[in-house]
């Protein structure tokens, strides 16, 4: 009997704790906006930002995207004159974070970090509860162009070396890529367009993939260059899936320059693009606040101190800062390419 009472108390304590937590968890979304919910109280005189801005972050602390955001954070804070709270909500390939943004109050105090093609994958493959009509991408930060990386000791010095070897011995070579990424797509396009056959090895993160490359367990690795900077001395880049050699690895020639004439194949630009977005509702209701976000963003990105900070970790050459409709259009257009190849991804 006493035991039962105690179990009862335990359950009561538990439910209390749960209630407190759920109250915390839903407060940013459940609180009604400004009483009546409309933009009634939006006199242009109202100061923005008047409180800290939450940056929803779809990936974990310490990842490439997180590092980029945190490198920018102090400079952006300086411009905005308020604190920014980087809030990492990992899960479901970013879907958790982006759903949280969609549900947040459209007042400009919640923004999110966006990554392409990851957003596209949540929409195409996971029935994400949002679409591009829900968001407005106000600033582009990086474009990390996908590349073919091999060990310094590899016999391949160009795309041609690799393609000819693969043609001579189909399915004897392996290339690694991180699953559900621009590099996975580049592998499929290579197989289809060049008519080559190789073993595509998918990894769930860049770390294990780089280990496999360094250990010689795969013959090459398809990846954005930013993450390769740390092992720069052990590898060489034999091809870039972008138009120009905006490369951290100056020796890396664009794939198109190498294969267009010989094989008559032209690749689209394949890259990971990172940027920041808000809800479309906010963009329409508060154009003045959006303008502040855009202006402070571009100033912070172009701050020489920020560029200097990125230089040390190899992130300065991939900066492609853009704002406004141009950023929005360019970011969303990437999704079209993946829609074409949707059935390649399971």
């Amino acid at each position: 009997m006493r035991t039962k009472t105690k179990i009862g108390c335990l359950l009561a304590a538990l439910s209390l704790a749960l209630m407190i937590l759920s109250a915390c968890g839903t407060s940013p979304t459940a609180a009604p906006a400004n009483g009546t919910g409309g933009p009634a109280s939006t006199s242009p005189a109202e100061k923005y930002p008047a409180k800290p801005i939450v940056v929803l972050h779809p990936h974990g602390v310490g990842g490439i995207t997180d590092t980029a955001t945190r490198a920018l954070q102090p400079f952006w804070e300086e411009e905005l004159g308020t604190q920014m709270i980087v809030d990492n909500h990992t899960g479901a390939g970013g879907q958790i974070s982006w759903t949280m943004l969609r549900d947040a109050d459209p007042d400009g105090y919640t923004i999110a970090s966006f990554v392409q093609p990851h957003v596209t994958f949540t929409m195409l493959l996971q029935n994400a509860p949002y679409s591009w009509d829900d968001f407005y991408i106000f600033g582009l930060l990086h474009e990390d162009v996908n590349a073919v990386d091999v060990l310094k000791t590899s016999p391949w010095n160009s795309m041609e070396d690799m393609i000819e070897d693969m043609k001579a011995r189909p399915n004897q070579y392996s290339l690694g890529a991180v699953g559900r990424s621009d590099s996975e797509l580049s592998a499929y396009i290579m197989m289809d367009e060049l008519g080559i056959e190789f073993n595509l090895v998918l990894f769930d993160g860049g770390g294990p993939a780089r280990t496999a490359l360094l250990g010689g367990h795969i013959d090459g690795y398809l990846s954005g260059e930013f993450s390769m900077y740390g092992i720069k001395d052990s590898i060489k880049v034999i091809g870039l899936f972008g138009d120009e050699a905006q490369s951290l690895f100056p020796e890396g020639l664009p794939v198109n320059d190498q294969v267009k004439e010989k094989y008559g194949v032209e690749f689209p630009t394949l890259s990971s693009v990172r940027g920041y977005g808000v809800t479309k509702a906010f963009a329409e209701q508060y154009p003045d606040r959006l303008k502040i976000l855009e202006d402070t963003f571009i100033k912070a990105v172009n701050n020489p101190a920020h560029i200097e900070a990125l230089k040390a970790i190899g992130g300065d050459t991939i900066l492609t800062p853009k704002i406004g409709d141009e950023a929005d259009k360019e970011f969303k257009a990437i999704s079209d390419l993946y829609a074409q190849y949707q059935d390649k991804f399971k």
């Binding site: 310490g62 990842g63 770390g207 780089r210 740390g230 092992i231 720069k232």
Partner: peptide
């Protein structure tokens, strides 16, 4: 430059945030 555990991944991130790129370099 490749983490052996979840926590060392954070340590590497800290290095990067201090402008040092972990790895052979």
């Amino acid at each position: 430059g490749i983490p052996g555990s979840a926590t060392t991944a954070i340590l590497l991130a800290a290095l990067m945030m201090h402008g040092l790129n972990p790895g052979p370099r």
